[in-house]
Design a binder for these strands. Structure first.
Lengths: 206, 206
DNA sequence: GTCTATAGGCTGATAGAC
DNA sequence: GTCTATCAGCCTATAGAC
């Protein structure tokens, strides 16, 4: 059965090539610049051929989105190995921000384009990149809690969501608004540092 | 000179009507759904007429954007009157998040569509809505500092940018990703509370 | 499996008549 | 000031030939 296997292989290869080129276009010119016509031209096939491999444009977007989130997860994983939870928070936060700024169009695609895709990715099956990434972050607070280092009324999931939102704010503001003076990394540092220890030298009103 | 005045008035009225209808379209269907043709039809003029009042589509977007930021500023102003800085931070943060969620398309237009517009608004003349809004937030930390309630090494501008980024993260995540369990208001509360006081009951590693 | 050809839309913007 | 008519392009998606 070598022939049908070769055909299958060639089919999969073309599919990969389409995705590779599509990704390149999105990275270079943004998601809205991804058109089936241009994509077809770039892979040197007719537009109609694309529809034999993907149901429509959105299916391509979804696939790119899923892979993009996979890359974000991969960027977070090394930091997740740091033992000390607070240091881990810092390292993972820095990795998150770095990923967002170094892959702006991938980040945009994951979190700033289509609400349906973002939501799907985040709340999909628990072995998906979304839940796994979130789990890595939540683990920080679970570890602190089980070591008795934060109040046992603290809610790790809620703290993790708050941190994620903060990091997302830093990245997305940097991607859409160049007006902030402070660098992303400084903002990230201030965010985590202050979330952990509070305002420096805070005293109550007298 | 009554005649020319009436003409001028009518001209301004049409301009306002165009903006009003444009705003309605953006609010209802998002910015990308704002097309000159549809807009012309909605105001019952020919497409070409719009170009007598606005240079192009972007000019309309910019005007909507500027007004939108004005509304955000107006939403923040009442909270800025609260005397106690930390309470002020809380009230203004809640107002910010509330505005974003209640006017999602306006918020999108200001901060999530065109980087050029966002940047322009934020760093424009210091009497613009951007710098003024930011100033209100920064004042919180300036007040804390001048009252000696935070370390005199603290940087109010940096703290304000961090808080702004955090609030923006909450709003924008809620607008593009429905997967978070925690409500926006709870996230906002956790963010400000934790930024001020640090993690609840934090103890160092032993 | 791949092509050509095309249906059936949409867009911003402008020239020139009235 | 406003219109009609149009330029010059873009798009997704599909039918049917090869």
């Amino acid at each position: 059965m070598g022939i049908s296997e070769r055909k299958e292989r060639q089919r999969a290869e073309l599919r990969e090539q389409i995705l590779r080129v599509a990704r390149e276009m999105v990275v270079k010119e943004g998601f809205s610049a991804l058109s089936m016509r241009k994509l077809a031209e770039a892979v040197e096939y007719a537009p109609a051929t694309l529809y034999l491999h993907f149901e429509n444009r959105e299916a391509i977007a979804r696939e790119l989105c899923v892979r993009g989130f996979g890359e974000l997860l991969a960027a977070l994983e090394p930091g997740a190995k740091v033992t000390e939870p607070l240091e881990r928070l810092s390292v993972m936060g820095a990795a998150y921000v770095k990923f967002g700024l170094e892959h702006p169009e991938t980040y945009r695609l994951i979190f700033m384009e289509d609400p349906r895709l973002s939501t799907e990715l985040f709340q999909g099956a628990s072995d998906g990149a979304g839940p796994r990434s979130f789990g890595l972050l939540a683990q920080v607070f679970e570890d602190l809690k089980s070591a008795g280092r934060i109040a046992d009324t603290a809610d790790p999931g809620r703290l993790a969501e708050t941190v994620w939102a903060g990091l997302h704010g830093i990245v997305s503001l940097k991607l859409t608004c160049a007006a902030f003076r402070t660098s992303a990394e400084e903002l990230r540092e201030t965010l985590t540092e202050t979330l952990v220890h509070g305002l420096p030298g805070l005293k109550p009103a007298r």
